[in-house]
Amino acid sequence: MPAASARKPPRRQGSAAAALRKWLDGHRMTALTSVRRLLATPVSSLLTVFVIAVSLLLPSLLLALSASLDSLLDGVQQETQISLYLDDSVTDFEAQEVSNDLLTEPDITTVRLISKAQALEEFAASSGLGEVLAALDTNPLPATILVTPVSTEPGRMTALAARLADLPAVTSAQVDSQWLRRLEAFSRLVSVAGGVLSLVVLLGLFVIVGNTIKLAIENRRQEIQVIKLVGGTDAYIARPFLYSGVYFGGAGGALAALMQAIVFTIFNSPLRELFSLYEGELTLLQFGGIDMAALVVAGIVIGWFAALFASLRSILAMQP
């Protein structure tokens, strides 16, 4: 039949390469059309992107913070110390003697004495309160001996600290690993919170992107009806909306990455100061290219799935 054979030409050139090119051509056209549609309503598109970005930013910040804390904890773990605060009546000479004695202990590897004067100097430098402190008649800071034990195992350290606290010159002994434990617990909490928030945000983004796509489909109901009447498949109809979802998600992820980079840059220098008090080799908040790419990819994947879900729901609900 002439009419039927006339329908075949597009397939006749039919090598796999030609078919692929045809398919890619179709996708490129749809992709461009989708961009044009989003740009046609720039304000609402930007708003959607912004909402997605902020939603992605919150869990991403928490997870990155937790990762940074973890790598920071790894770095200082070996340097766990015991701080011995000396009595005010102990002279610098006596303090030096005590620290020399400690060096001979088999349980202890290194000993570092921070005299009252040194302590004041360091604190003045790091706190910026030098003038206030200079105005004081007396030095309120105690002399400190930092002891690095052979074993960093918590039980042994606590026992050692208790023994050292009994020395006459020492008023109190503090195991520095306590703040590490707290920091570890805090990091775990942050990571759990980040995980939970990720799930909540995932749901939220599904609703946000899904709703945006649903509205876009409602607005194009007439067009979809006509496309169906002339033989468009559900997949063909859904395609531009899937592209929209990908664009929204990708742009939202990129904006979130940018915001996170800014936040980390702002917070890094005060954090560096905070942690330098503890004298560790510190890895501060890290946010590199891979993390940025991960955010964008997460945005794209979420956007695509949300759009797929929403468009299939809407399109299947319409008359075939």
Partner: peptide
């Protein structure tokens, strides 16, 4: 052009 677009015809054809 809509039915041809849907059927995947090349733009020229």
């Amino acid at each position: 052009a809509l039915p041809l677009q849907i059927a995947g015809y090349h733009a020229h054809e």
